[in-house]
Design a protein around this nucleic acid. Structure first.
Lengths: 203, 203
DNA sequence: GTCATAACCGGACCAGGGTCCGTTTCTATT
DNA sequence: AATAGAAACGGACCCTGGTCCGGTTATGAC
C-alpha cells in the first residue's frame, strides 16, 4: 500500500487537486456574478455551470446542492461579521460593555439578515453546512453576553428567544407585508433585550 | 350580456360546480391518505392526482401549488386550534385569566407546531394562503392577551417576539439537533413570557 | 519518462413542480 | 329537450434540482 504523500497535517487545508481548485474558484465567481447581476433567482445550477465553463455534475460535487452553493456565497460576509464581533471596534467588538455590545449585535444582525435575505433563504437547508456553524456562532455570542450581564435562568433558551425574531422569515413578514419601519423593529428588539435582561419581577 | 345567475351573496360560499366539489374532496382525501400512510414526502402532485383519479392540472388549479395543498390539509387542525382558543375550556379558552391563557397558548402552539412540523414546512410559501391567516390569528390573540395584562410598549413587536421562538425551524433545531427536551423548551417560553410581561426595570 | 491510482469531470438521464391549451362537462335559460 | 357559454378537466410539455457512470487527468512512485 502507498501512504498518502501529503498526509493532512492538522487536517486544515484539505488537499485539493489543482484543477478542482481552479474550477471551484471559477464557479464561485460565476455564481457571485450571477447573483448581483440578475438576483438570486437566476442562480440556477445549469447557469452557474455554463458560466464557469464546467459540467453540471462538477457543481454538485463541489457544493452538494443549491443550498450549499448559496451557503458558500454567504461565507465571505459571514466571516466579516464574525470578525467584527470578535475583534472589531466597539460597540460591536470586545471593547464595549456587554449591554451595548448586545444592542449593537442585534442591529447588525438584523441589518445583515435583511441585506442577504434572498441568499439566506436559498441557503437554508444546506445539509448542516453553513446553517449550523453560522447559527452556532451567534448563539454562542449571545449566550456569552447574557452571562456577562449576569442574567439568571436558562441562558441557552433566552439566547434563542432573542435570536428568533431576527430570522429572515420573520423580518420579511414585518418589513414586506406589515410595512414596518426597520428602526421600529430595532427599537422593539432593544426593548425585548431590556425585558429579558431585567428578569421577571417575581423570580 | 347575461347577469351571473347566482351573484355571490355576501361572498361566503363561493359557488362551486358539482364536479369541482367532488374532485376537491377526492383530492383532499387522497392527499390526507398519502400523508399518513407514507409521510409528507410522498405527497407528490402526480401521486395525489393519480390517487384521486384526476389530471395533474386539476390539482394545481384547485390548490395553486404544493404549498397550497399542504395548507388546506392543515386547515382542519388549525380550525380546531382556533376553536379551542376562542371558545374552548380553560386554561386555553376565554374562562381563564390572561396570564394562564398565554402560558397555555404557548404550550399548545408549541405542541401543535411540532406535531405538524413536516406539513407546516411544506405549506410555508403558500402564496398568502394559510401562512398569513393562521399567523394573523395567533398574533392577534397574543397581542390581545398582552393588552389584557397591561403590558406597556410596542405590543405588536412583543407578540412577534413571543411567537418567533415557537416557529417550526427553531423548534426543530432545538429538538432534533440540540436534543432538547420539550418540557425544557416550554419552561423556557414561560420564563420568557414572565420577563416580557414584567417589563424592563428602568422604563 | 512511465505507470497506477484516485480524484475529478461532464453530460445524459430522472423526478417532481408548474404551465398551457384544446376538449369536455356542467348549469341556467328558453 | 336544446343550447350557449362559462367553468373545469387532463395530459403533454417545460424547467430545474439532483444522480450516475464511463471517460479524463492530475499526482506521486519508480
Amino acid at each position: 500500500m502507498t501512504e498518502p504523500e501529503l498526509l493532512p497535517i492538522l487536517g486544515q487545508p484539505v488537499p485539493e487537486r489543482r484543477d478542482a481548485a481552479r474550477n471551484r474558484d471559477a464557479l464561485m465567481c460565476a455564481a457571485a456574478r450571477l447573483v448581483d447581476s440578475c438576483g438570486v433567482e437566476a442562480v440556477t445550477m445549469d447557469a452557474v455551470a455554463e458560466a464557469a465553463g464546467v459540467g453540471k455534475g462538477t457543481v454538485f460535487r463541489r457544493f452538494g446542492n443549491r443550498a450549499g452553493l448559496m451557503a458558500r456565497l454567504l461565507d465571505e460576509s459571514e466571516a466579516a461579521f464574525q470578525a467584527s464581533v470578535i475583534s472589531g471596534p466597539p460597540p460591536l467588538g470586545p471593547d464595549a460593555p456587554p449591554y451595548e455590545r448586545l444592542i449593537a449585535f442585534g442591529r447588525a444582525r438584523l441589518t445583515s439578515n435583511l441585506a442577504n435575505a434572498d441568499l439566506l433563504l436559498a441557503a437554508s437547508g444546506a445539509d448542516t453546512g453553513r446553517s449550523y456553524a453560522a447559527y452556532s456562532f451567534t448563539a454562542t455570542h449571545v449566550r456569552y453576553l447574557l452571562g456577562q450581564l449576569g442574567v439568571r435562568g436558562d441562558i441557552a433558551l433566552l439566547a434563542t428567544a432573542l435570536l428568533a425574531p431576527l430570522e429572515v422569515p420573520i423580518l420579511r413578514q414585518q418589513v414586506n407585508i406589515e410595512q414596518m419601519d426597520v428602526e421600529r423593529i430595532v427599537a422593539g428588539w432593544e426593548d425585548l433585550v431590556g425585558r429579558v435582561v431585567s428578569g421577571p419581577v417575581t423570580p
